[in-house]
Structure formats: structure tokens, C-alpha cells
């Protein structure tokens, strides 16, 4: 028996909305330590790693670990049936063939029940080694989203260069070039607006902006984002959740000597 009750459906809905563009089907692994999800996008460029700790739910109970294979589009469709303020309960058996979702409008004493059929998903799991990132930037998530959205107008890809005390997001295209320089900044009144940069070694990486923009959709989930870079490895982009996190591993574009 698995049961997780959240005070507000909004959080879960936003998470699903944030990731549904990148993955079609994925497995939710529910265990005592919460709900976890690891999903690779189709082209193996982005890995989404999601963890929702039990603390994030009003009620969390998981007798046996269960794996819930869900089609993201179907899940999103059903989630749309509940309002953001509703209490949401996820429920299933130990050997589930469907996942039940209940939306409870406490105010109006109204309950709507849905269930979604589960499926067997043959999914790839990647083991992510402990990586020492040489650059770490924490900044307001909305800012990052904006920079990248702007640069997308210029080019398909962005280069992120972390040098000394600043991080440069730069793009070059037919229309013209553009670069955003971000420096350390502390907002004592509003810590979420602060930018902290921590660079041990200079690093410069290129990323596909299409994918990057998909990633930054998670800005709705958290006010801050932590971007970690190291040469020769995928970037890690993490959004903190009330209990848990959503983390993206993003493969950079490489090469340059190649004429492609």
C-alpha cells in the first residue's frame, strides 16, 4: 500500500508540467524515502533526477517499494482535473496496475477521484558518479530563465564561461551576438535574489539552448537555481524543492575541431 497526501496539488502539478516536455514515459519509484524519478530524455542529452521526500507530504506511507510507470501526458491530463488548492492524494496497491489520484476540495467538501493506468517501462538508469564541479553558481531561477530565453533569439546554443568571479552566458548568431555577465551579488533583504559564484577553475561549456530552455521551466518550482559546471562532464542544474530537489544533468556540446 502506497499513499501520499499533499496539502496542495499545485506543487506536484508544477513538477509534472516542468518535466513533461522532455520525457514521455517514466517510472516513479516510491519507497520509504520518498518518491524518486530518474528519466533520460529521448536523445540522451538531459537526465532528470527528481526526489520528493516524505516530508513534503502531509501523509506519506509506503509499505513496499513500488515502481509506477506512467505516461507523462496522461498524468498531466488528469492532474489538470484538480485545482491547485485541492488536497491531492496518490494511492496504489503493492502490486499496482493503476494509480489512484484523489482531489479533495476541503472548502466545498467535494472529492474527485481519478485513476491512471500504469505501464511497464523498460527504462535506462544511469549511475551518476560523484563529480567535483569546478564552478558553482547559485542565482535566482527566473533570471537564468530570462537570460537563456533572450539568447535563444540569437542562437541555438549558448556558451557558459566561468572565469574568476564572473559567469558569462554568450551566444553568437546570424543576427548578432549577445552576452550576459553575471557577478556575485548579495541581497541581504531578499536572499533569494542573491547570486553566489564559486569558481575553483575556469571552465567554459556550450549547451543547446532548446534543451536548456526546457530545463529552466523548472523555475516555477523554486526561486533559486544552482548551476554546477566542470570541464568534460555534463552540467548539473538543481532546483531545490520544499523537501527534495529536481536536478538536471545536461550534456554539453563538445568539439570545435570538427567541421560540423
Amino acid at each position: 500500500m502506497f499513499e501520499a497526501k499533499a496539502n496542495e496539488a499545485a506543487g506536484f502539478k508544477q513538477i509534472i508540467e516542468a518535466i513533461r516536455d522532455m520525457i514521455t514515459d517514466c517510472n516513479f519509484d516510491c519507497s520509504n524515502s520518498g518518491i524518486a524519478l530518474q528519466a533520460l530524455d529521448k536523445s540522451h542529452i538531459v537526465l532528470i533526477s527528481l526526489l520528493l521526500g516524505p516530508e513534503g507530504f502531509n501523509d506519506y506511507r509506503c509499505d513496499h517499494a513500488v515502481t509506477l510507470g506512467v505516461n507523462m501526458a496522461s498524468l498531466a491530463t488528469i492532474l489538470r482535473c484538480g485545482s491547485n488548492q485541492d488536497q491531492m492524494t496518490l494511492r496504489c496497491d503493492d502490486q499496482p496496475d493503476s494509480l489512484g489520484l484523489t482531489f479533495e476540495d476541503v472548502k466545498h467538501d467535494r472529492i474527485s477521484e481519478f485513476s491512471i493506468k500504469l505501464m511497464e517501462i523498460d527504462q535506462e538508469y544511469l549511475s551518476i558518479p560523484e563529480t567535483e564541479y569546478t564552478a558553482s553558481i547559485t542565482m535566482p531561477s527566473a533570471d537564468l530563465q530570462k537570460y537563456l530565453r533572450d539568447l535563444r533569439q540569437l542562437s541555438e546554443s549558448v556558451s557558459i564561461t566561468a572565469n574568476k568571479d564572473e559567469v558569462i552566458f554568450a551566444a553568437a548568431g546570424d543576427v548578432g551576438d549577445g552576452a550576459v555577465h553575471v557577478r556575485q551579488y548579495t541581497d541581504s533583504e531578499n536572499p533569494d535574489k542573491s547570486v553566489s559564484i564559486n569558481i575553483s577553475e575556469p571552465v567554459s561549456l556550450n549547451f543547446n539552448l532548446h534543451y536548456f530552455n526546457n530545463i529552466t521551466k523548472a523555475a516555477t518550482l523554486s526561486d533559486t537555481v544552482t548551476l554546477q559546471l566542470a570541464d568534460g562532464t555534463p552540467a548539473s542544474i538543481e532546483y531545490k524543492l520544499p523537501s527534495g530537489h529536481i536536478r538536471y544533468y545536461f550534456a554539453p556540446k563538445i568539439g570545435g575541431d570538427d567541421d560540423v
Partner: peptide, 21 residues
């Protein structure tokens, strides 16, 4: 797209991470 001066090639996560399959 290539003409747009994109000199880089998209890499793949599998190039970095081992599958736990």
C-alpha cells in the same frame, strides 16, 4: 542550422555516465 555557425556538436550523457541497466 549548421550554417548558423554552430561549431559544436551535442554530446550525449551516455558518454559520461555508465548505464545501470
Amino acid at each position: 542550422q549548421r550554417k548558423m555557425g554552430d561549431a559544436y556538436k551535442q554530446s550525449n550523457l551516455l558518454d559520461y555516465y555508465q548505464s545501470m541497466h
